[in-house]
Design a binder for these strands. Structure first.
Length: 580
DNA sequence: GCCGTTTTCGGCCCGACTGTTTTCAGTCG
């Protein structure tokens, strides 16, 4: 079941799309879209409180009219007028708008001219040459439309990929661009730099005196299979992996504003430009200018934000979910967690269960990353498919852990733990007598994902009430682009975490990123603590930590809320302090 | 539909590109 906040946001977005089809005033449409984003940055409890007290209009971008709509949505689940608009424009028409190069105007033109928005019927119309007869369309746009319709009917249009699938290739390409002729600075930009969960393409920005030479260098990268376009300052290519990469090259004096512009998000940029206007400045990728067209000197993003009267806003926060207002008010977290803050690797598997590296290899790798400890948390006995450990196995493993600690100490420690399955009735998978002897207990769901919301919520809350439960592993169970989260009332899970002191995991496995940034933000609002974990099954996967850190930052997580920024002894004792 | 350190009305973010046009609308980021 979707929570109230999610359904309100969805309704506002639906309304915006309907109004686009309706040909409504563009700024009215924008108002709905901005309101949706604004609410995304507010916790559900705060939203309900603002509705109850009639103070919704204290949010930027929500005036009397939208406040009324949101109140109606919260109270009744309906929005007057939305249903009527939805019926006027069928779902197929709404889906058309998502096709590349098709917006509301052209979708409507197709629908009206052909009397249908059904993708299969449109394919036929393209093949019969009927689309090119429609005013505003021609031979080229007919071909483009046909191609994207066929893709839509084939594997679907979700050509987004998990960030981690893209990042290594993007970083290799960045290193290559940095070696281009005359390159002064180069950086990743776009959703990759913001560490979004999924990315559609990769954006790079570089500075050099002669753009053309760098662009030629770029298009000669061995993995390039197709050059989509190459102009004076931009080249766009397709790699053999199917990934699209765009490179912009500017003079170094323009690097900071170009990098900022192409990092986005679009909504963040829009709001920042509005702020600039109010200060009598205009901001674009080509610089910050005053009203007389004089260019301000901007050498880096720090300087850009400073000229606008703001502290630096890290890329992970640039989603227009309240970060600019918070920055203006001095309310941005001043101790946003960083990778350097993390002192221990939490949640790891070895060859004792389903890992691919030995315990010794894992320990040495963690130590060489500068970590002070690694928690050994194999699967428990119920997870037979993953080589889960029986109590006897766990005791045997302790002997190896003790030996390794004698060898690798005293500045590095393996902590004794387990990742216990949460059974169907919410019990943990090992006897209490054993759980109390462990340094930490992660408990996670690995089976029976499909329970209904009431039973699943009860199952998780029951586990959290266990006095030896320290950390809830991958709390929502989602797999990015593959599996939706469990049917779980997150609000109650967060509340129980606050009451019991149970720590919620931010699992850095790039297919999970669980909790999500949005849930991290709700956890922060409630004072719930987090641990940033790798869920590593090999030494290479210790690198998952960066995704956990980035996801936590996207949820504005403070260092002080993250338990594995503590040294080993404090980490163990703070977990022991649970269940007051 | 929102908003106000020039405005309670009249503005509202910026630029590039594409394809279809013959001066520009629509789309995109």
């Amino acid at each position: 079941m979707a929570d109230v906040k999610t359904s309100v946001i969805r309704a506002l977005k639906e309304m915006a799309l309907s109004l686009k089809l309706e040909g409504a005033n563009a700024f009215r449409i924008q108002a709905y879209e901005q309101a949706a984003r604004q609410l995304a940055g507010v916790s559900e409890d705060r939203l309900l409180e603002l509705v109850r007290t009639g103070r919704l209009t204290t949010l930027v971008g929500i005036g009397p009219s939208l406040a009324e709509h949101v109140t109606e949505l919260v109270n009744t689940g309906q929005l007057t007028g939305l249903e009527e608009l939805t019926e006027r424009y069928p779902d197929e028409l709404r889906a058309l708008v998502r096709l590349p190069s098709i917006g509301p105007r052209r979708a409507l033109a197709l629908w009206e001219a052909l009397g249908t928005a059904d993708p299969a019927a449109l394919v036929e119309a393209c093949q019969q040459g009927r689309v090119r007869e429609i005013p505003g369309f021609g031979r080229n746009s007919e071909q483009t439309l046909l191609a994207s319709l066929q893709q839509l009917l084939g594997e679907g249009l979700t050509d987004r990929r998990p960030l981690a699938e893209v990042l290594p290739e993007a970083e290799r390409l960045l290193a290559y661009v940095q070696q281009g002729p005359g390159v002064v600075r180069a950086s990743l930009a776009g959703s990759v730099r913001r560490f979004a969960e999924t990315v559609g393409d990769v954006d790079l920005v570089a500075s050099a005196p002669r753009a053309r030479a760098v662009l030629d260098h770029f298009t000669r990268w061995p993995d390039v299979v197709k050059v989509r376009g190459s102009g004076e300052s931009l080249a766009s290519v397709i790699l053999d992996s199917g990934l699209q990469v765009d490179l912009r090259v500017v003079r170094d004096a323009d690097f900071a504003t170009a990098l900022h512009h192409f990092t986005g998000s679009k909504a963040h940029n829009v709001r920042l430009r509005t702020l600039a206007r109010r200060k009598g400045l205009t901001l674009s990728e080509w610089g910050l200018h005053d009203l007389k067209g004089r260019k301000k000197r901007v050498t880096d993003e720090d300087g850009l934000y400073a000229l606008l009267g703001l502290p630096f806003i890290p890329p992970e926060l640039r989603e227009d979910t309240g970060e600019i207002q918070a920055a203006l008010a001095g309310d941005l977290p001043d101790d946003l967690v960083t990778e350097k803050d993390v002192l221990g690797i939490v949640h790891s598997h070895s060859t004792w269960s389903d890992g691919r590296s030995s315990l010794r290899e894992m320990a040495l790798a963690a130590r060489s990353l500068g970590m002070q400890y690694l928690t050994v948390t194999e699967h428990s006995q119920t997870a037979g498919y993953a080589g889960g450990l029986t109590p006897a196995d766990v005791r045997r493993q302790w002997r190896e852990i003790d030996a390794l600690n004698r060898e690798l100490g005293p500045h590095f420690r393996l902590l004794k733990g387990i990742e216990s399955d949460i059974l169907e009735d919410g019990r943990l998978d090992l006897p209490d007598a054993m759980l109390t002897q462990l340094d930490l207990v992660i408990a996670s769901i690995h089976a029976r994902h499909g329970m209904d919301g009431a039973r699943m919520t009860h199952r998780v809350l029951t586990a959290m009430d266990h006095p030896r439960m320290d950390i809830l592993g991958h709390p929502t169970g989602r797999l990015i682009l593959r599996r939706p989260p469990y049917d779980l009332e997150m609000k109650r899970v967060l509340e129980r975490a606050r009451q019991t002191g149970v720590v919620l995991e931010v699992n850095g496995n790039p297919n999970r990123l669980d909790l999500s940034g949005a849930h991290v933000r709700e956890a922060m609002d409630r004072g719930v603590r987090l641990c940033l974990s790798c869920d590593s099954h090999s030494t290479a996967e210790l690198g998952h930590l960066r995704f956990a850190v980035a996801t936590a930052r996207r949820g504005w997580a403070r260092r002080s809320a993250v338990v594995n920024t503590l040294p080993a002894a404090d980490f163990v004792s703070t977990l022991r302090g649970n269940h007051p």
